[in-house]
Design a protein around this nucleic acid. Structure first.
Lengths: 184, 184
DNA sequence: AACGTAATGTAGCGAGTGCTACAAGGGCCA
DNA sequence: TGGCCCTTGTAGCACTCGCTACATTACGTT
């Protein structure tokens, strides 16, 4: 592997941590380069342009998220929607995963603004989420699997969105209240 | 009322429409001025700075949203959480209200990034939402009203977030699926 | 040792950002 | 009519943005 490719990997790794820590707040080329410990000139030597940097870093973050999701809620017997929501909510509101969800909300908003490369990233990650949920849903015959999967994701993402702009102590109460709202 | 104050009002009105149409995508001073039909120089004569422009426009938008919410779900007998969610979901996913919710998601993300004046706006609007939901919740004695209100808002906002980055035909199916997930 | 490619630094371009200094028009009251 | 303040235009500042031209160094191959 060339030095260039090694550096690419190292930069992606460092920038994944940077994005998880600061969200999309410090993502100018010069700020990204500083966070990665390289010059902005070299960042554009390793990557074609800023969009490619962000796409590569987001792919890494998404991969890490899916690994952790698979660990937290492994394949096995399918779960009823309410139970899946409870377990996913407990996972995503945990101290480790909150920054993932926060970044996710920011990325969705950037995609809504049409800012490259986020629309493509969001489409891909969202499709992955849907597929993942669909594969773990225990639903009666004839139920709308895709609709239910979307609803499950909506609830999880909604928790994250409210979590972002609330005092810390409300999150567990919100999750608990949500749990009682869900049918068995 | 001075010309300056009249212009302020007119500008706020036009920019509210602009933000609802384009989200936060076109919000540089020059772009805002163009959308308002004034020069950027005058925009900063009517308002102290860009943050004041956005704060005033967002206050207008939030006011309009709360008026429409009150029309759609008027005061009256309190609703059980599931029913409140169903009605609010039907309202916010309607063609007219989707752009409000989309803007709201973008504003929350901007607040997460720390971008002035959005953190303050989000705190204010979110407090308003919570109060509004709390006042309409039919809950058994001893239930966690604040937690439940936050959960209701989370579900509604989650629908909006997923709605932003999905094909059009999934939204009603998602809302229907959500409805069956909620306990009576 | 000579050559060629990969890797890196320096400097800066053109565009856009929020914002401002300065001056001039325009209508009010003395 | 003269002075005054509200209103508006012109021009531009200092900065950041993504990106690039150009030169130079480092290094493996022959």
């Amino acid at each position: 592997m060339s030095i260039r490719d090694q550096q690419r990997e190292a930069v992606i790794e460092r920038l994944a941590g940077h994005l998880l820590e600061h969200g999309l707040a410090r993502t100018s080329l010069r700020q990204l380069a500083a966070a990665a410990g390289v010059s902005d000139r070299m960042l554009l030597y390793y990557f074609a342009d800023k969009a490619e940097v962000l796409a590569a870093v987001m792919a890494r973050v998404a991969g890490e998220l899916s690994v952790r999701l698979a660990e937290a809620i492994p394949d096995g017997a399918p779960l009823k929607p309410a139970e899946l929501v409870r377990r996913a909510a407990a996972f995503t509101t945990g101290p480790e995963m909150r920054r993932f969800m926060r970044l996710w909300v920011e990325v969705v908003a950037a995609a809504a603004r049409g800012e490259a490369p986020f629309p493509a990233i969001v489409a891909q990650v969202m499709a992955g989420f849907r597929h993942w949920v669909d594969g773990r849903l225990d639903l009666p015959e004839g139920a709308d699997r895709a609709g239910t999967a979307a609803a499950v994701i909506a609830v999880i993402d909604g928790l994250a969105l409210v979590d972002i702009c609330s005092e810390d102590e409300i999150a567990p109460r919100m999750a608990a209240a949500l749990s009682t709202l869900l049918a068995e």
